[in-house]
Write a protein that binds this DNA or RNA. Structure first.
Length: 422
RNA sequence: GUGGUGGUAGCUCAAUUGGUAGAGUCCCAGAUUGUGAUUCUGGCUGUUGUGGGUUCGAGUCCCAUCCAUCACCCCA
């Protein structure tokens, strides 16, 4: 065991027993995305480090201490495994001039990498699914995104275990103004700050508002509020988003302390959270990032989007007890004897031509042991072929589930039989 | 990255104050020599996460380390 090879910490194998749940989830996503007109964008997992530094922000936790960054020994370039999807998405949109013909609705999915201490619902390689709408001004797409996420919870049966929190961060000027007031306020109360807060005072004072330290609550409650700094445009935008939610009957709470860990957000931010996954309860988060396209060198364009943590959503599905769809074949092909195996190969192909899912028993074994495998496979039928059948060009069909008699018929008739029973 | 808890067969778990590592399940074979899911019988599986230490003797105590997990932190 000491020399045993293991997967890298925080990075998991997806085993066959679990893949049906992922496939069910992914299939649900595809249908749902199509119904809103979103189209897939796939970007490389590896990007130049500079992209994430510019997009996410130099002083964020992600960039400062969580990125898998390394030098490509072959050419000396600094590379980074993507820690999130938005930066790559915007980069690709700019690089290929996708906004030339107007706004774009895009989605992406895949592995992301952050070097954090692993915990349930938090892994070093984890999967995000996200959507980005670029080139659309105003609150329309913010609202669409919230409506579509709410629909997804209904589709997945999760509507009762997630709740929506929203906030507005306003524009850059509002945030700068608020930041100054916040620092001034905390400086006058510096003796009451805990160690975390003191550390953040100048690097990321907004984060102090997020503190869970009970001793800090009174201080935080009385702090200057960003909402008070919002200009008319930001307020009108926020009001429109709230109205959209109310029109759709989606419950929400305004959380003035909701802050994003990535620097590119402005105006609307939101999180869908659950209390059934412990400390890793944020299942979907997003908002508007109007400045990012220009910041990354593109022609200025408004944008908004969100990302979901796939592992967390699947954990929630398991918690709620979704029926995991079976992936059993229609037919398990039992074959004993050399001639029987050769005939069974042809029989299997004939059944697959007719659209059936067929597992052919491999590696020999007695009828008894093969029948046990047939049962364990979950197949509805066993098709039994011994040398007797092979010589006659016949097969024996035995129902393994429900009623029905075993019958021995010609292969061509068997194919017809399966076409009928589906 | 910080602190707490835990790690025994493929899986779920036992093992008295330190004294011979066990059960269920799974898998394999047979009862039923061409037929599963029930029943009965028999069989296989372990450097007790890893490496040190204390001891006549360590799954059990000590140290380190790895992994998981809970909270912090962070975030999806």
């Amino acid at each position: 065991m000491s020399n045993q090879l293991r997967a890298v910490r925080g990075m998991n194998d997806l085993l066959p027993a679990d893949s049906p749940l992922w496939q069910y989830f992914e299939a649900t996503l595809r249908g749902w995305l199509k119904s809103y007109g979103y189209r897939e964008l796939r970007t490389p997992i590896l990007e130049h480090t500079g992209l994430f530094k510019r997009a996410i922000g130099e002083v964020t936790d992600i960039v400062e201490k969580e990125m898998y960054t390394f030098v490509d020994e072959l050419n000396g370039e600094s590379m980074t495994l993507r820690p999130e999807g938005t930066a790559s998405c915007v980069r690709a949109v700019i690089e290929h001039n996708l906004l030339f013909e107007g706004g774009k609705r895009l989605w992406y999915a895949g592995p992301m990498f952050r070097h954090e201490r692993p915990q349930k619902g938090r892994y070093r390689q984890f999967h995000q699914f996200g959507i980005e709408a670029l080139g659309f001004a105003g609150p329309d797409l913010d609202i669409e995104h919230l409506l579509m996420t709410a629909r997804l919870w209904r589709l997945l049966g999760l509507a009762d275990c997630v709740r929506l929190e929203i906030n507005s961060l306003g524009g850059a000027e509002s945030r700068a103004r608020h930041r100054e007031k916040l620092i001034a306020y905390f400086l006058t109360h510096e003796s009451e700050l805990d160690a975390d807060a003191k550390r953040r005072l100048h690097s990321n004072p907004l984060r102090i508002l997020d503190s869970k330290n009970p001793a800090m609550q009174a201080l935080v409650e009385a702090a200057p509020r960003l909402m008070d700094e919002l200009d008319d445009t930001a307020l009108a935008h926020f009001e429109a988003v709230k109205r959209g939610l109310e029109d759709a009957g989606i419950a929400y709470t305004i959380n003035p302390r909701l802050v994003r860990g990535l620097d590119y957000y402005n105006f609307t931010v939101y999180e869908w959270v659950t209390d059934r996954l412990g400390a890793q309860g944020t299942v979907c988060a997003g908002g508007r990032y109007d400045g990012l396209v220009a910041q990354l060198g593109g022609k200025p364009a408004p944008a908004c989007g969100y990302a979901m943590g796939v592992e967390r959503l699947l954990a929630l599905l398991v918690e709620v007890g979704v029926a995991t769809p079976a992936d059993a074949p229609d037919v398990y092909l039992v074959n004993v004897g050399e001639a029987a195996t050769r005939f069974a190969m042809q029989a299997g192909e004939a059944l697959r031509d007719a659209g059936l899912d067929v597992v052919l028993h491999g590696g020999g074994g007695s009828f008894k042991s093969q029948m046990k495998k047939a049962d364990a496979s979950g197949a509805r039928y066993a098709m039994i072929i011994g040398d007797d059948e092979a010589v006659a060009g016949e097969v024996t069909i035995k129902p393994l589930r429900g009623d029905g008699e075993q019958q021995r018929i010609a292969l061509a008739k068997a194919v017809e039989f399966f076409k009928l029973v589906g």
